[in-house]
């Protein structure tokens, strides 16, 4: 099966290794991975800021880039959620586009959900010596139903122990432009998250979205925590945690 990888703009710029980890996992599950070269941004920043027109332009571009693939997979709950749950709403009044968007939305998956439930991966290449705790990113959890999938996959990683934090489902305070517009509130929310992470004494916090990742890592370091690693679930599963 031909899987189109939506790399996402944040992975592209900030953490390219996560993109390669995703490719490694998908290939190890027997998928043929294609990476549309012209992909950029899914349009989420505009959508969440009320700039519907901008968002629609980028959505149309993304649909054209990915509709030839059997599946669209993203190492992000929020970007895959954008395509799956919000694109159809964006084109609700445009029948022709709506048909295309709905068809793509039906084949759109968050990475761990796809690996477990579609590709039905049996073993993962990674290994991790230590304890991790898992942060449920909001869009992945509430828009894509990602909760058990990453935990089931992490359970397949030799050496890895999972210690749940309290309020794993609470928002980390990122929220896209919210973190800039309401920096103080956002930082306090991040602080609560960091405290819950530290209370588990885990070696690393693992998660599935770049926004949360940068936010949590940024706040942990600002708090003076230099030791807790912040890892994307794809990195852990692929064995690329350095």
């Amino acid at each position: 099966m031909k899987v189109g990888l939506l790399v996402t703009c944040l992975v592209d710029m900030m953490r390219p290794s996560i993109g390669f980890a995703a490719i490694k996992l998908l290939e190890s599950a027997g998928c043929e991975v294609v990476v549309p070269a012209t992909q950029t941004c899914c349009g989420q920043p505009g959508y969440n800021s009320g700039d519907r027109a901008s968002s629609k332009l980028l959505a149309a571009k993304l649909v054209a880039e990915f509709e030839a693939c059997d599946f669209l997979v993203a190492p992000s709950g929020s970007c895959s959620g954008m395509v799956k749950t919000h694109y159809p709403e964006l084109f609700a009044d445009d029948a022709a586009m709506l048909a295309r968007v709905t068809a793509l939305a039906a084949r759109t998956y968050e990475l761990t959900d796809f690996l477990l439930n579609v590709a039905k991966i049996q073993a993962v290449p990674g290994r991790f010596e230590g304890t991790v705790t898992y942060h449920d990113s909001c869009s992945g959890l509430r828009e894509m139903g990602v909760k058990a999938q990453p935990r089931e996959l992490l359970a397949k990683v030799p050496g890895l122990k999972l210690a749940e934090m309290t309020e794993a489902e609470s928002c980390c305070g990122f929220g896209g432009t919210f973190s800039i517009k309401f920096g103080e509130i956002s930082a306090r929310m991040s602080d609560n998250k960091c405290q819950n992470i530290e209370d588990t004494h885990a070696d690393a916090v693992v998660l599935g979205d770049l926004g949360c990742m940068l936010n949590i890592e940024g706040r942990l370091r600002r708090r003076g925590n230099e030791t807790t690693k912040v890892l994307h679930v794809a990195q852990v599963l692929a064995g690329d945690t350095d």
Partner: peptide, 10 residues
């Protein structure tokens, strides 16, 4: 600055 007042950017 709203971001960096409260946290670093990796």
């Amino acid at each position: 600055g709203g971001w960096s007042d409260g946290r670093d950017l990796p």
